[in-house]
Simulated scan of single mutants.
Amino acid sequence: MSTEGGNRAIIAALSANLAIAVLKFLAFLLTRSSSMLAESIHSVADSGNQLLLLVGGKRAAKQASPQHPFGYGRERYIYAFIVSIVLFSVGGLFALYEAWEKFHDPHGFEGPWWWVPLVVLLGAIVLEGFSFRTAIKESNHTRGKRSWVNFVRTAKAPELPVVLLEDAAALLGLLFALFGVSLTLLTGDGMWDAIGTALIGLLLVAVAVVLAVETKSLLLGESATADHVKAIEGALVGPGVDKIIHLKTLHLGPEELLVAAKIAVADSATGTAIAKAINDAEQRVRAAVPIAKVIYLEPDIYTAQQTSSTTPVAP
Rank of each mutant, 00 (worst) to 15 (best):
T3M: 05
E4I: 09
E4W: 09
G5W: 13
G6H: 07
A9F: 14
I10Y: 04
I10R: 02
A16E: 11
N17G: 14
N17H: 13
L18I: 15
I20G: 09
A21F: 12
A27D: 03
A27L: 07
L29K: 03
S35G: 15
M36P: 00
L37M: 13
A38H: 04
E39T: 11
I41C: 11
A45Y: 10
L51K: 00
L53S: 07
V55C: 03
A60T: 09
K62H: 15
P66A: 04
P69Q: 13
G71N: 12
G71W: 12
G71L: 09
E75K: 04
E75H: 02
V86R: 08
V86A: 15
L87G: 01
F88M: 13
V90M: 14
G91F: 09
G91R: 07
L93P: 12
A95T: 08
A95N: 07
A95E: 09
L96S: 05
Y97V: 11
A99G: 05
K102E: 08
P106D: 08
G111V: 06
W115M: 04
W115H: 08
P117S: 04
V126F: 15
L127T: 13
L127E: 02
E128Q: 15
T134G: 00
T134W: 08
I136F: 13
E138L: 07
E138H: 06
E138T: 06
S139K: 01
R143E: 08
R143Y: 01
W148N: 12
F151V: 14
F151T: 14
T154W: 09
A155Q: 11
V162C: 13
L164V: 14
L165I: 15
E166F: 03
A169P: 08
A170W: 12
L171Y: 04
G173M: 10
G173N: 09
F176D: 12
A177V: 07
A177P: 01
V181R: 04
L183R: 07
L183N: 02
L185A: 15
G188F: 12
W192I: 03
D193F: 06
A194W: 10
I195E: 03
T197H: 06
A198H: 09
G201T: 12
L203C: 04
V205H: 07
V205P: 05
V207Q: 08
V210P: 00
K216Q: 12
L219G: 01
L219N: 03
G221R: 07
D227C: 01
D227N: 09
V229T: 12
I232M: 04
E233A: 11
G240S: 02
L247A: 02
K248G: 02
T249V: 04
P254M: 02
P254H: 02
E255A: 11
E255Y: 10
L257E: 11
V259C: 05
K262W: 02
A264N: 05
T270W: 02
T272Y: 01
A275D: 10
K276L: 07
A277P: 14
D280M: 07
Q283V: 04
A287Y: 01
V289M: 08
V289A: 03
V289D: 05
P290D: 00
I291D: 15
K293E: 13
Y296Q: 04
Y296A: 05
P299W: 04
D300P: 01
Y302S: 10
A304W: 07
A304P: 00
Q305T: 05
Q306I: 00
P312V: 08
V313R: 03
